[in-house]
Design a protein around this nucleic acid. Structure first.
Lengths: 347, 347
DNA sequence: TTGTAGGCGTTATCAA
DNA sequence: TTGATAACGCCTACAA
């Protein structure tokens, strides 16, 4: 009953004694044939087990696939562990599903740097995060297809962003309004190193357009505004937004003298790790230690104590990016998603 | 410098004054031409901005794409919120990245049920969870391509599973060994309803092969073995593994009389919700209430108190499924991933 | 070692 | 309203 090879449009055409064009039209252009014939063809196809045109062939012919690519900075496996990325991808998927598009996750730095040509498949791309020297990114650009960037800007493409400086400045000020005087900053991707470590004085003054840098600058600006200071040795670099890495940094920060009483974390995952280490060390939050995060991931509000953080609307960013990409007009609008200070119990 | 249309193999061939076959061979079959020529071609292509054969065309021609599809039960957006799915996908991605394959997430019940023909693209499929009457699943089967099923069995395909009965039985017994006598079960997908609700006595005896049923049966068996009993009205149905839904069920369970002192949760997310509601109601865990979960998601160990649960190795399941799929031999092995009781503080 | 040519499954143009 | 036909970009016998 069922052959080994899937049916092709051509085979179906010959079985039904009509031309291939007619079958094709039955599926794609209802107005090109009588309703009756179309009905008949469709139901016959159903019966035969032909479920419509082959994607590779159609994609080759039409130059479009119905697939949208999302280019991520790190390995896919990593992004599945990251709550922020998950919220973002959730937002994207919602919009894509509504529009009957498929989602293809692409990662630049996949261990195999071998070109697979996959970048030729998607009809458009969402680029999530800065992609310095990512060969796949270069190849995507070459495709001359619609692109939306998120969390960074390029003059050539529409983008979705938050005001990192303002958001970081606001929450840092909230912390500094409490009675704290000895601070630490637990930062993400501050420098190019895959080790958890403190940064040096020199590195403190590096100029860069990265998200992390904008936040760091805002933190420091807030600190200075409050007549406090922070030394480079009180600023930690965490390579990836991983709980275990964060925990190591948290441990270092909480066991060094003089005792800190305020910790600024560049992500909620980091702040969560601080909470955990603080508990292990019998440091009570917020009495002895104030902690602030960034992102507002779902776990933040269930933590003990619930985390004070800033909501960056990751899911909304995903939705907006997908909508902008699917938007026919393809304007080069720079979208700014508002952030919101979320005050809970950790500070 | 850069044209609007991407270069094609043919154009490159004519620019370089060699045949298309030679270019193709340079990319795909190094042994078919001199190393020198290959070097030259590759570097010229690089210079011209030709990054290798177009995927749609190659895929059409060769019948393979380098893409692996993962068919999920619910919407993509939902799966991105689900920690268990994320661990599973993480495992898959690790293996795929190592093997230079791309990951395409497919969801059966996407709002748009319109066939896109996407199922023709992947070279193989991982089917995650039972797919009753999912049209996309039917179409995938029609492709006659390698398939691995996870969390359910089919005589035709290799599968990756856990022993749900044994795992549930073991953890339920652990709970019942403590001094508990008034129980509630917070179950997942017990019946076909999208409302959080209790089940009825009739529904309790429904036979089904679903994961949830196997766990439920094991729970009940353990309860009876311990000379206790549980009424259908003490068993909740939660449609999706969502924190908010779980919270509602938890609230109902914890505010009904007689007071429960032991709650069996069919997922960690549910157990987390119970912890949160218990805290709101000033019920202390584990003193006044013992709680057990299922899955061992990362958040389980950071909860207050840390969750007693059973680790079902979701990530490992993903890895094994991907490996089985990529395995040339394509045996029909049924893999059983061992589970492990993880005793922490909630029980 | 390199080139020629047919076809993978569709769709769009054009003619009937 | 329907059918023939030429691409779409590539791969691979096979011929040179």
């Amino acid at each position: 009953m069922q052959s080994n090879k899937p049916l092709t449009l051509k085979k179906v055409a010959s079985i039904l004694n009509v031309s291939t064009a007619t079958i094709s039209n039955a599926f794609n252009r209802p107005d090109q044939l009588s309703a009756r014939l179309r009905e008949r063809i469709l139901s016959e196809c159903e019966r035969l087990g032909y479920h419509g045109p082959n994607l590779a062939a159609r994609s080759l012919r039409k130059g479009e696939s119905g697939v949208i690519g999302v280019l991520l900075t790190d390995s896919l496996a990593y992004h599945f562990t990251d709550a922020v990325a998950n919220q973002f991808l959730q937002g994207i998927s919602e919009v894509l599903e509504k529009n009957n598009k498929q989602l293809l996750m692409l990662s630049g730095c996949s261990s195999g740097q071998i070109a697979t040509g996959i970048e030729a498949l998607p009809d458009g791309f969402i680029i999530y995060g800065t992609q310095d020297h990512n060969p796949l990114f270069e190849r995507i650009i070459r495709q001359n297809k619609p692109i939306v960037t998120v969390d960074f800007d390029s003059p050539d493409y529409p983008s979705v962003n938050i005001d990192n400086h303002a958001a970081a400045f606001e929450i840092a000020n909230h912390l500094l309004a409490q009675s704290v005087d000895t601070l630490a900053i637990l930062g993400l991707r501050l420098i190019h190193s895959d080790r958890v470590c403190r940064i040096t004085q020199d590195e403190l003054y590096d100029q860069s357009e990265s998200v992390s840098r904008r936040r760091l600058d805002a933190y420091i600006e807030a600190i200075k505004n409050n007549n406090l200071d922070i030394d480079a040795e009180r600023i930690w670099h965490i390579p990836l937004n991983l709980y275990e890495q964060a925990k190591q940094a948290a441990k270092e920060a909480l066991t060094s003298l003089p005792r800190v009483n305020g910790i600024i974390c560049m992500s909620d995952t980091i702040a969560l790790a601080v909470l955990s280490v603080a508990q292990e060390l019998n440091i009570s939050v917020p009495q002895d230690l104030k902690v602030i995060g960034f992102d507002d991931i779902p776990e933040a509000k269930r933590a003990t104590p619930p985390l004070t953080t800033v909501c960056q609307g990751s899911k909304l960013k995903g939705q907006l990016a997908a909508e902008a990409l699917l938007d026919k007009h393809q304007n080069t609008t720079k979208l700014m998603v508002p952030t919101e200070l979320v005050i809970r119990k950790s500070c």
